[in-house]
């Protein structure tokens, strides 16, 4: 038997053609004036109220607390902390993630309702950082949960985390919420 991975039958070709048509219909619908302006309003609302989880894994959490404090006030951008993952839109992984903690973070992430975002804060959460060679350290939180914004630094200053939040707000504003984008044709 020869492999037929790259050879398309007639039916396969047709379904693909249909998909292309559907995709263009999607695009037309999503570029509609009404949907885009409604999307913009909804996204503005979502971007300006990203509540984050009261959660820190290591020393970056101290900087996270500072970011909520008077000098770099996250509340200005509508971000307050909530203690329970059910009411959060954003989880900030602040600090070294050990292998034992990784499974717990996965649970916390799964408990958050959609739409949810992740900021990876500091070198340890980004890639293992200083403790990269440790036997018990996870080399980057993106091995467990999908990350939206990486904030470099060891630890990042409150200004850097604020910048990270603003970048995330930009990302949320540019999303299409009402009409889901098709990932691939």
């Amino acid at each position: 038997m020869e492999k037929r991975d790259h050879i398309e039958t007639r039916e396969e070709y047709r379904t693909k053609e249909n998909e292309v048509q559907e995709w263009s219909a999607y695009q037309k619908l999503s570029d509609n004036v009404l949907f885009t302006s409604l999307d913009k309003i909804l996204n503005l609302g979502r971007a300006n109220s990203l509540w984050y989880l009261l959660f820190g894994t290591a020393c970056c959490a101290i900087e996270l607390m500072q970011t909520g404090g008077p000098r770099a006030d996250l509340d200005r951008f509508g971000s307050v902390f909530r203690p329970t993952p059910r009411q959060c839109d954003l989880i900030i992984i602040a600090g070294t993630v050990t292998l034992k903690m990784a499974s717990r973070i996965k649970i916390l992430y799964d408990q958050m309702p959609e739409p949810k975002y992740v900021i990876s804060m500091g070198s340890c959460a980004n890639c293992g950082g200083l403790f990269d060679l440790g036997y018990s350290v996870l080399r980057g939180i993106d091995k467990v949960i999908p990350v939206d914004v990486y904030v470099p630094g060891c630890p990042p200053r409150p200004e850097a985390l604020t910048e990270g939040l603003l970048v995330l707000q930009q990302k949320v504003k540019n999303e299409k919420f009402l009409v889901k984008e098709k990932k691939s044709i």
Partner: peptide
């Protein structure tokens, strides 16, 4: 903004 976000959140 909070209201819009809370309405759009998944009802878990």
């Amino acid at each position: 903004a909070d209201g819009i976000k809370l309405v759009l959140k998944e009802d878990l």
